[in-house]
Design a binder for these strands. Structure first.
Length: 108
DNA sequence: TGTGTGACAAGCC
DNA sequence: AGGCTTGCCACAC
């Protein structure tokens, strides 16, 4: 990932990790943060992904919270639709089965 | 320059 | 099982 994914932003590492999430899979903020070199700083991931809404070049919709639920209050409906389009089963309450679609970033 | 908030996580009750 | 509290870092006012 040298010149890909807007390296002009301080969240380039986060963008890279999110971009590595395979289709039909989801990842938690904490997991992405750890893979990006920011263990525990899950909030930064959420903040970075928020900025992506203005650029939309990274599968931000594949990132959900630890409870397996979509915390996005800005585009929860859109995110759910995108995940379902990817083959991810999203509950009517924006809840996702982590036991089946959780991507730990180590397997695959 | 300092305070407050945020698409969260982990711990405790 | 669910709900409350604390800690983390970056950004807006």
């Amino acid at each position: 990932m040298d010149g890909s994914a807007q390296s002009d932003s301080p969240y380039s590492a986060i963008y890279a990790v999110v971009s590595q999430i395979p289709p039909g899979r989801v990842c938690t903020y904490g997991r992405v943060a750890a893979l990006a070199g920011l263990p525990g700083q899950a909030r930064l991931v959420g903040y970075a992904l928020h900025a992506l809404l203005h650029h939309s070049v990274v599968p931000w919709w594949r990132v959900i919270n630890r409870a397996g639920r979509i915390s996005n209050v800005y585009a929860a409906d859109e995110q759910r639709a995108r995940l379902q389009a990817e083959g991810v089963v999203v509950d009517d309450n924006y809840l996702i089965d982590l036991a089946r679609f959780l991507w730990e970033g180590d397997e695959a």
